[in-house]
Amino acid sequence: MSGETRTVAAQDAAAAGAPFVIHGYEETVAHDTRWNAHAHPWDELLWNGRGASVAVVGARAWTITPTLGLWMPADTVHSGSAVAGTWFRATFFGRATTPSLSDVPVAVEITPLLRLLLERLGDTSLAPGSRAATEAMVLDVLTPSPRELLVHVPTSPLLRPIADAVRRNPGDGRTLSRWAAELGVSARTLTRAFNAETGTSFARWVAGVRAQHAVELLSRGWAVEIVAEEVGYRSASAFGAAFRRTTGLTPGAFRHR
């Protein structure tokens, strides 16, 4: 991704004791944008009003959308990127005033109710009592989601060539058997390696990579039929079925509006 690269300055750990409960930040990026590896002294909920972004922690990459956010615990080093036109939202939770949803990154479904509550907190004229009530409701409805657009990127010498090729070209149609032949190992060896390193099968890992890439292209306004071909499916219907299995939503839900 070409475009703008931003550096997030280190933040004073003493700021973790700041008395705020929930504080929001939002911005629409004009260009494809990357953020360097950084951490915050507060818990953070990453979500989008529009478009797609990615948060990376170690070898794990989560795609964030208007319906699927990510809880980033305080002091977790992460980097990120966003597609041009993305309206990204970051909601910070004061560690001194709120319990942490999780001590590891977890997906959060951005339900219509949660979205309305978070947007209400952006009203600077909100009375203190109304703000406190809204913050309490946010904390009440904020829960981890069983769905997530997560890809664990393998880094071992055995799997790295596969990971690099598929992430560079999600339409790469080479099967596990074909990869095994090219790498001079057995298909069983690759199967074990994928399960051990990514926690899933080769086929599901590829589907996850394709779904993440598809979300980015759909957010850029690409037609579903073109995206289907780009990420390796023979038809829009086959792509739609696979996309729904992976994300729980139709491709149309991610089209840029």
Score class of each variant (00 low, 15 high):
residue 50 R to V: 01
residue 6 R to D: 01
residue 2 S to N: 13
residue 16 A to P: 00
residue 33 T to G: 06
residue 6 R to F: 03
residue 6 R to L: 15
residue 18 A to N: 10
residue 48 N to K: 00
residue 48 N to Y: 00
residue 61 A to V: 08
residue 39 A to F: 14
residue 54 V to L: 09
residue 53 S to Q: 10
residue 3 G to R: 10
residue 19 P to E: 08
residue 17 G to F: 02
residue 4 E to F: 03
residue 61 A to K: 13
residue 47 W to S: 02
residue 51 G to W: 01
residue 15 A to E: 13
residue 56 V to M: 06
residue 57 V to L: 03
residue 61 A to P: 00
residue 61 A to T: 06
residue 45 L to H: 08
residue 45 L to D: 03
residue 60 R to W: 08
residue 29 V to W: 13
residue 55 A to V: 11
residue 57 V to N: 07
residue 44 E to D: 05
residue 29 V to L: 14
residue 2 S to Q: 14
residue 2 S to L: 14
residue 15 A to V: 08
residue 29 V to P: 02
residue 33 T to Y: 12
residue 26 E to P: 01
residue 53 S to F: 01
residue 40 H to L: 01
residue 53 S to P: 00
residue 5 T to F: 09
residue 47 W to P: 01
residue 43 D to I: 03
residue 14 A to Y: 08
residue 30 A to Y: 04
residue 60 R to I: 04
residue 51 G to M: 06
residue 3 G to Q: 10
residue 53 S to I: 00
residue 43 D to E: 08
residue 4 E to I: 13
residue 54 V to G: 02
residue 45 L to F: 07
residue 59 A to M: 01
residue 48 N to W: 00
residue 17 G to N: 06
residue 28 T to P: 03
residue 21 V to F: 05
residue 51 G to H: 02
residue 56 V to H: 04
residue 36 N to H: 09
residue 5 T to L: 09
residue 18 A to S: 13
residue 34 R to N: 03
residue 58 G to R: 08
residue 57 V to K: 04
residue 11 Q to F: 05
residue 36 N to Q: 06
residue 47 W to Y: 11
residue 4 E to S: 04
residue 5 T to W: 09
residue 32 D to W: 12
residue 2 S to T: 15
residue 57 V to H: 10
residue 30 A to R: 14
residue 52 A to W: 03
residue 37 A to Y: 13
residue 40 H to G: 04
residue 22 I to F: 09
residue 29 V to G: 02
residue 48 N to V: 00
residue 18 A to L: 15
residue 24 G to K: 07
residue 7 T to C: 03
residue 46 L to R: 02
residue 52 A to C: 10
residue 45 L to I: 04
residue 30 A to F: 03
residue 10 A to L: 14
residue 7 T to P: 00
residue 23 H to Y: 12
residue 5 T to E: 12
residue 31 H to A: 13
residue 16 A to M: 06
residue 35 W to T: 12
residue 34 R to M: 04
residue 7 T to I: 13
residue 31 H to K: 10
residue 46 L to G: 00
residue 37 A to I: 13
residue 51 G to K: 02
residue 40 H to D: 13
residue 35 W to R: 08
residue 3 G to A: 09
